[in-house]
C-alpha cells in the first residue's frame, strides 16, 4: 500500500533535470550558496544539485551541504527537482545561476 503510493507520487512528479554553468567569478562560495539555499527553500519541491549529471546529489536547501560542494567558476551545476512546484523551482534556480547570483 505504502509502496504503491510512493510509486504514484514519483509518477506524478517525475524529476526534472537541467544544468547551467557557473559564471560568477568565485563559483559557489559562501554568498552564492546562501542565495541558492534561500531560493530553494521558497519551493516545496525536493531540489538537489550536483557537479556531474549522475551525482552525487546534494540537498540544495542545506546551506552547509551546498557550501561543501565547493563548485568553482566554470563548473556545470546540475539540478534534479521533483515536486508540485518543480517547474517554477527549476526556472528560478537556473535564472539565479545564469544571473551569476547577482554578482557577475
Amino acid at each position: 500500500m505504502h509502496d504503491t503510493n510512493a510509486h504514484r507520487a514519483t509518477q506524478i512528479f517525475a524529476p526534472l533535470t537541467a544544468s547551467a554553468v557557473l559564471v560568477n567569478p568565485v563559483g559557489l562560495h559562501a554568498r552564492p550558496s546562501v542565495k541558492l539555499t534561500q531560493c530553494a527553500k521558497g519551493f516545496t519541491a525536493k531540489i538537489e544539485i550536483a557537479l556531474a549529471a549522475d551525482g552525487p546529489w546534494t540537498d540544495a536547501k542545506s546551506p552547509v551541504k551546498v557550501m561543501r560542494v565547493k563548485a568553482p567558476q566554470g563548473a556545470t551545476l546540475h539540478f534534479r527537482i521533483s515536486g508540485p512546484d518543480g517547474e517554477a523551482a527549476l526556472t528560478a534556480m537556473l535564472a539565479l545561476v545564469h544571473d551569476g547570483f547577482g554578482e557577475a
Binding site: V34, T37, Q38, K41, G42, K61, S62, P63, V64, K65
Partner: peptide, 24 residues
C-alpha cells in the same frame, strides 16, 4: 550565525535552525 540565519530566513523551525548550524 550565517548558516542559522540562512535556515531561519527560509522560515525553518528553531530546532531546524540549530541542527543546520551544528552541521558544521
Amino acid at each position: 550565525a550565517v548558516i542559522a540565519a540562512t535556515e531561519s530566513s527560509g522560515g525553518s523551525s528553531l530546532a531546524a535552525v540549530k541542527r543546520s548550524a551544528e552541521e558544521f
